[in-house]
């Protein structure tokens, strides 16, 4: 009964993995015959500053995006967990951006972030704050994209945190209250430690999602200003499908995959020793 899966697996997993190992030793534009180049693609990676930059950018994105996401998701989850009316309505609204395509969000935010006519700068100007060059300055472009990604995804993590909050036994709070702990102390000494597993989940999911950053810079910035939003996937895409360097792109893909694999592994190790 698992035959269809095995067939599919060998065709779309085993074969591509094997073929990508072949590809990294070749130059190929798909149109003309493949050409063996030995380790040239590997040597090129080591001297390719733009690829290095794209890796750093991806890292910067994660470092901005993940903490912001956790803090905001926690903030909203704690509030939604109180006894409030219309909780369902709030949850529905917070979750809305999660289901919408990244393309929609990207086109929308391209307008919102526009320097002269964007809604965000219009609001800022109306309250007397200087306009911010969101997508067009080296300093702001990646934070803007990280902010947008957070806006899009945070609803999912609000739900996860709400699940986590509900699994905390109420007795813990009651006991703490008897000992005279204020709400701040209760949050930092009970809620946060009890939510640790959820935080881990959020981090793991965001890391995996963040590594595939592509459509946002593809549509909004083309990787600029000065390569500051060029993600690794966008760079690989350009090399492969714009410039026809399949072998080199496959090599970068392999390299990048090893990095992701390592990061995820290290994370697991860390989680196993620290949390459980």
């Amino acid at each position: 009964m698992s035959m269809p899966y095995m067939a599919h697996l060998s065709l779309f997993f085993v074969y591509p993995v094997v073929f990508s190992i072949v590809l990294v030793f070749h130059r190929w534009d798909v149109v003309t015959p493949m050409e063996f180049v030995g380790f040239k693609n590997f040597i090129r990676i080591l001297s390719d500053e733009v690829f290095l930059q794209s890796l750093i950018n991806t890292g910067v994105f994660l470092l901005l995006h993940i903490p912001l996401q956790i803090v905001l998701a926690l903030f909203f989850a704690v509030q939604l967990n109180e006894k409030i009316i219309a909780r369902g309505l709030f949850r529905t609204i917070y979750f809305l951006p999660v289901v919408v395509s990244g393309v929609v969000v990207t086109i929308l935010f391209q307008q919102l972030f526009s320097f002269e006519t964007g809604l965000i700068n219009q609001f800022l100007f109306a309250v007397g704050i200087d306009q911010v060059p969101w997508l067009v300055s080296e300093k702001w472009a990646m934070p803007s994209i990280a902010f947008m990604a957070t806006w899009k995804n945070v609803g999912l993590y609000v739900i996860l945190f709400m699940g986590g909050l509900q699994s905390i036994p109420p007795e813990l709070y009651e006991a703490a209250e008897l000992e005279g702990a204020n709400s701040m102390q209760r949050f930092f000494h009970i809620t946060l430690p009890m939510l640790n597993p959820t935080v881990v989940t959020v981090v793991v999911l965001s890391v995996i999602g963040g590594f595939s950053l592509f459509i946002e810079p593809y549509v909004m910035t083309g990787g600029g200003p000065m390569n500051s939003t060029l993600s690794a996937v966008l760079y690989i895409y350009n090399q492969a499908f714009n410039f026809g360097h399949m072998g080199y792109a496959a090599t970068m893909g392999l390299f990048f995959a090893v990095i992701i694999f390592t990061v995820v592994k290290v994370q697991r190790k860390f989680i196993e020793t620290e949390v459980y």
Binding site: V17, S212, A257, I260
Partner: peptide
């Protein structure tokens, strides 16, 4: 295994 590795093949 990240999809980046199998994308091009």
């Amino acid at each position: 295994i990240p999809f980046q590795i199998t994308l091009i093949p």
